[in-house]
Design a protein around this nucleic acid. Sequence first.
DNA 1: CTGTTACAACGACAAATGTAGGAGTAAACG
DNA 2: CGTTTACTCCTACATTTGTCGTTGTAACAG
Lengths: 127, 127
Amino acid sequence: MGKKKLRAMSPTETEILRLVWQLKEATVQEIREQLPADRTLAYNTVQTLLCRLEQKGYLKHRDKGRAHVFAPRVEPEEVIKTTVRDFLGRLFGGDPKPLVQFLAEDGKIDEEDIKRLRQLIDKRKKK
Amino acid sequence: MGKKKLRAMSPTETEILRLVWQLKEATVQEIREQLPADRTLAYNTVQTLLCRLEQKGYLKHRDKGRAHVFAPRVEPEEVIKTTVRDFLGRLFGGDPKPLVQFLAEDGKIDEEDIKRLRQLIDKRKKK
DNA sequence: CTGTTACAACGACAAATGTAGGAGTAAACG
DNA sequence: CGTTTACTCCTACATTTGTCGTTGTAACAG
C-alpha cells in the first residue's frame, strides 16, 4: 500500500484541504464560498493554495468545462494521523494525555463523547 | 488581566517552548541536550529560536555568568488553549469530536484516561 | 460579432521559517 | 600570560508561506 511520503502542508493549506474533503470535490470558487465568514481569501490565493496542494500530492484535478475541479488524492485518516502525531509531538512531546485533558477541561468533550469512547476502546480490546 | 496578543509561533518554536516549560528555565545548551535524539539543531539554531520566542513575548531571560537563562513568560495553559483551538480549526473545522475519536482509534486513549475524563466532567457539571 | 465574464496560468513579492556561520569576548586552563 | 572554551551577538540565506496582480482566453450576453 501507498506509503507515499507527502511533503508537509502549511497551516493554511491544511485549512483548504479540509474543505476539499468536506465537499468531496470543488472548484476554486466553491472553496472560496465554503470559507468561514471571517476568513476571506482572494480567488487567486485559493487557487495558489489548491495548486500547491496538488503539487505536494494531496489533490488531483480534472477539467470540467473551463473550470478545474479539485479532489482529494489522500484519505483524511492518512493525513490526520501524521498531522495529529506531529502536533502532539511538538506541543506535548508526544504524550496525548495532556491534550485529552485539555479538551475535557475546555468543555470540548461531553458525556456523549465518553460513552462513544468507551465503546471504541472495548471494541479495540476484543479484537 | 493579561489578554496579551502574542504573535503566532512557528512549529519549531513551539517545540522549543515546550522544552523550556519542561525545564522551567534553561540555557541554550540545556535545550539542545533536551532535544529528542532524532532531532539535532545547531547551537546557533536553538539560540535563534529562543531569541525569536523572546521577541514574540513567550520567553524572558536573565543572565547567569556569561550565559542566558531563558524562562517562560506565559503559562502553558494559555498557549495550549489557543494553539489547540487553532489546530482544531484548521484540521477539523473546530469540531473536537473527530480528534478525540482519532486519538481513541489510534490507541492513544486507554481506560485510565477515560476514567479520569469522567471524573473531570462530573466535577465540571457539579459546578 | 463584440463587449463582458469567468477562469486558469504565470509571475511576483514581502514576511516568516529553518538553519547556520563568523566575530567578539570573558572565563577557564595550563 | 597565551590558548582554548563557551557563549552571545549580528548577519546571512535559501525556502516556504501567505497574498495577490496581470494576462490571455474561452464562453456567454446582447
